[in-house]
Design a protein around this nucleic acid. Structure first.
Length: 199
DNA sequence: GAGTAGATCGGCT
DNA sequence: GCCGATCTACTCG
């Protein structure tokens, strides 16, 4: 399958991309271990308007720098002091859009992912939720600003998911963002076993 | 099965 | 010094 190109991530419509990424494959090749799966759940963050984004109001701090780079790179940050959350930066330079990958359906390197997650058996929560997914794929804050068209973390074209199979809903864990918290910018594949359990 | 506390630390005020 | 784009384990039933 074809690797997604730089141009793909430069698309100006982050909501389209968040939806379009469903069904595509996310891979990592870290320390010689190939792991990956099909994206089944995403969330779009579109600053500067979006109060739920770290780059709300074009805020610039060392942490938010990746948002302003050209699309096609990773934004990885530490949440709750424990979890590495993996985002894809999109759109042109200086437009702080990003997509949080919330869940994948494991396909490649399942043994490796089980080991990283310290699990014996595969279960539906292996890669469900942004923190869990990063552990399974071996992604951490060292991969911040990583080029997503290279050979460490990349995406590939795969299934086409039709609109009828996509559920839209409000994003998770962003209640502080007021009216922006209720925007239906979370997308997931309907009836998929591998989506996160978050409400 | 549902509900909740605790973990744990960088970023920002 | 406070708190977060979360997960797990543990309780109770």
């Amino acid at each position: 399958m074809a690797k997604l190109s730089k141009e793909y991530f430069l698309n100006e419509d982050v909501l389209f991309l968040a939806k379009d990424l469903l069904g595509k494959k996310l891979f990592s090749n870290i320390n010689g271990h190939l792991t990956g799966g099909i994206i089944v759940e995403t969330e779009a963050y579109q600053a500067p308007e979006d109060k739920a984004s770290h780059a709300f109001g074009n805020k610039r701090t060392p942490r938010t720098e990746p948002f302003y780079l050209e699309g096609g790179i990773a934004y990885v940050y530490l949440c709750y002091g424990i979890h590495n959350l993996f985002n894809i930066v999109t759109n042109k330079e200086n437009i702080p859009h990003a997509i949080l990958i919330r869940a994948i359906e494991p396909s490649e390197g399942i043994e490796i992912m089980l080991e990283r997650r310290r699990r014996i058996k595969i279960s539906s929560d292996l890669t469900a939720g942004p923190g869990a997914l990063s552990v399974a794929l071996g992604i951490n804050v060292n991969h911040n600003k990583e080029d997503l068209t290279g050979n460490t973390i990349w995406l590939e074209d795969n299934l086409k998911v039709i609109d009828e199979s996509i559920i839209k809903g409000p994003r998770v864990g962003v209640a502080y963002a007021g009216e922006w918290a209720s925007m239906p910018w979370r997308f997931k594949i309907k009836d998929n076993h591998w989506v996160s359990k978050a409400k």
